[in-house]
Amino acid sequence: MLKDITLGQYFPGKSPVHQLDPRTKLIVLVGYIVALFVAKSWASYALCFGFLAVSIAISTIPVKSIVRGMKPLVLILVFTGVLNLFFTGGETVLVHFWIITITLEGVVRAVFMVVRILMLISATFLLTYTTSPISLTDGLESLLSPLKKLHVPVHELSMMMCIALRFIPTLIEETDKIMSAQKARGADFETGKLMDRVKALIPILVPLFISAFRRADELATAMECRCYQGGEGRTKMKLLRYKRWDMYAFAAGALLVAAVITLASFGL
């Protein structure tokens, strides 16, 4: 059934990685990405890989789930690899065939690029697998709160994200129901020319929009009834607080970035 789809792919758990403050995870992820892009040598890649491997190990997220998540991205990876393989110039020509030239530099670069993307995506998956969407939203809101001074509606944006997350499953279920109801009246969504198919969507979209507006209206009333007046003067039940593990994570992250930059400055 459609409603069984889990959003954000969060795997609840109690590991130290799960319990890290979402802000820590976001900041360390940014640091890790910086390190990845600064990395030029096998040694620095090895450092980044080590960091990732340890994080995954601590998180108790099975490597299998991360690999499974990669499946839809295989095409991009292959494309990146092939592009770098063929279009990197260099001196050590390995294969020369018709207009295709593969150089040693090309091979190295292609491998680096693919590994970089793989490691980048794995780390992002680790974040979404170990952080519930709501705490991710909270973390983002808190990190972005300095932007409030620039009149960026940070609270409103995070509220919108939160409500969207809440209502996506409801609306998916609703779409399912409307589709069945119209099919029962003989509507056909599967056959016909493109124009017919587009037309066939009207009996679904109209009721869906009407219902979404009705929901929005009722939700707004309900929120008003619960004294919602925007972000001003609002408190939070769950305060974000850095704990011991957050310090370890920051330290490890900082160490990684420093090490990679140092290596890079030595041309490694």
């Binding site: 969407p133 809440r166 009705r214 039940m237």
Partner: peptide, 13 residues
């Protein structure tokens, strides 16, 4: 409609 008055996607939130 209980669906249209629940704001967050975790019960306690």
């Amino acid at each position: 409609n209980p669906d249209n008055q629940i704001v967050a996607n975790v019960v306690e939130e």
